[in-house]
Nucleic acid binder design. Structure first.
Lengths: 302, 302
DNA sequence: CATCGCGTTGCGTCGAGAGCAACGCCTAGT
DNA sequence: ACTAGGCGTTGCTCTCGACGCAACGCGATG
């Protein structure tokens, strides 16, 4: 009867997420034909095609994307309602999923979760790392409650609960000739052996752009997706790298390396955001965590 | 299975609205037992009582009110989605329901709807009058899309799309001794025979409060819920009244009566609001109407 | 004390929706 | 060129969840 029934939307969300009716059916423990029929009927009633079928699966059409947003929002609201009613007072669904860039790892753990787990021992966390775009996608599509991203453009689909400017800094070994300096030029940095994050992280493009503007060549000796590796690279004295201050804060504190300002305005303007899905009313647990992290993490100090 | 199924929420909304399972069942063309059972099952699953039963019907509990908001919001979002998909492109559901204080009647009609019906002939309107609180309730509970209210306190459940200060003015006959004045004191007004709106309209309390602050007695000769009657009262030269300027604009233009500023700060601070339900994404039709009225109606000119 | 309207419960019935199996289609690998 | 595997879809069957009907208990009201 109703083409936008709750159960239909649940199935729909699974299909959109999996990109395949069969896989969604498997995850939901039903037979694919059941879902296929529901989708077909909904399309007939709405007079709109929701998925484009291919031999590899299905992908959302434009109209389908609208329905997906609706389904996601409904799911959020439902969770919020159950939270309000106290349906989760037993502690279930007190799971907060955080998606974050790898650079936030130590800041998140030492300044955020360490105390948070003591103050609210009933909370459970799922923490996943991802590049900036993937991270944003996870928040938007409901795979994560909170996203913490560096150098990201906010869209209509996300809302920022905390932000601060976190310049991209130069990370140099403690015995580097640059180590005593207060700030360095981009040219001086690029004259050193260099390790950098891979393309997915945006930082790479940021530096690449700045270098191009000055007509400087970007010679990367080591390229990796691991920030831990970058830090070890610098600590070992092999060469320099670029990271925001908070990513290297603990090593800098121990004197293992030195963090320098770079005289390059485009690298000063970089923002960090703590984001949640737009228009979502946050369950108490998520709100608690978001507020706590916003206040405590170094990445959101001005 | 699902205690918050779409169909359940539809029934739930009807019950909450009607205050009676039987009446809701009748309106939905189902048998009362069906609904009664659904509610009982939902309460069992949620572990919360949603309605308090009495021999006269049912009323929402606190938890029930949360569910009602959820149901209302879901309904809004669903309508919005269908609107976006173009499901209503045939023109159905292009009905915009406006709840307004009676004082806005001529302004609404002459400066708003007159042109609007020409520009968008496919739009249909349902316009209902109500006192300030009732009006707000209708917007919140989804019985109206747009509310236009005078002297209202905005709450969390409503959002204001347009507002302006509209002082409460003195309305006097054209041959009144006060008619030539630019402004008058409250005392001078209250010395005249007086007709006023009844309590439900808030204007009464506003004047009563101002009078009390100055130690003036409020002697009301005629008390009515009809603004048209107030206007005729003044036009006929019987006495004076209090109304915002826009309510008497057309009569003042024709010279049938005179509108005067009152030297009383509390009467200057009164606001008009064009409000919609908070957190609601407006269908195109509603948005069109809201924008149009905000721009054209005298009540929202500064 | 009778009556009326309310929500609720027991029981029989029906149909929406799920499972099963077969089909057609496209892709990719041999 | 062909085959094998994965995909969405369709015809059929069956089941069980939801509805209608009727009777019940309860409180208010006159």
């Amino acid at each position: 009867m109703d083409p936008l029934d709750t159960r239909f939307l649940r199935d729909f969300l699974a299909v959109a997420h999996e990109g395949s009716i069969r896989r969604a059916a498997e995850r939901l423990n039903v037979v694919p034909s059941a879902i296929s029929r529901k989708i077909a009927e909904a399309e007939a009633r709405l007079g709109v095609i929701l998925f484009e079928r291919s031999s590899k699966g299905v992908i959302l059409t434009e109209a389908g994307e609208l329905v997906r947003e609706h389904a996601q929002h409904l799911h959020d609201e439902r969770t919020y309602l159950l939270d309000q009613i106290g349906h989760y007072s037993d502690g279930s669904s007190q799971i907060v999923r955080i998606a974050t860039g790898e650079g936030f790892t130590s800041d998140l753990m030492e300044n955020g979760l360490l105390e948070l787990t003591h103050v609210h021992p009933h909370l459970r966390f799922i923490i996943e790392h991802a590049g900036t775009e993937e991270l944003q996608r996870r928040v938007i599509e409901g795979e994560a409650d909170i996203g913490i991203a560096y150098n990201t453009l906010m869209t209509e689909a996300t809302r920022s609960l905390a932000q601060s400017r976190q310049p991209l800094c130069g990370i140099v070994p403690r015995d580097s000739p640059l180590a005593g300096r207060k700030s360095v030029s981009l040219a001086e940095m690029l004259a050193q052996p260099l390790a950098m994050l891979s393309q997915a992280y945006g930082i790479r493009n940021l530096v690449g752009q700045a270098a191009a503007d000055r007509g400087l060549a970007l010679r990367v000796q080591v390229e990796t997706a691991s920030i831990a590796l970058l830090l070890r690279y610098v600590c070992a004295g092999v060469g320099v790298s670029f990271l925001p201050r908070f990513s290297a804060a603990s090593q800098a504190e121990r004197g293992d390396l030195v963090v320098l300002e770079i005289e390059e305005s485009s690298l000063q303007q970089v923002n960090t955001h703590l984001m949640v899905r737009a228009r979502r009313r946050l369950p108490k647990s998520v709100e608690t965590v978001a507020n706590f992290l916003s206040e405590r993490m170094v990445a959101f100090r001005d």
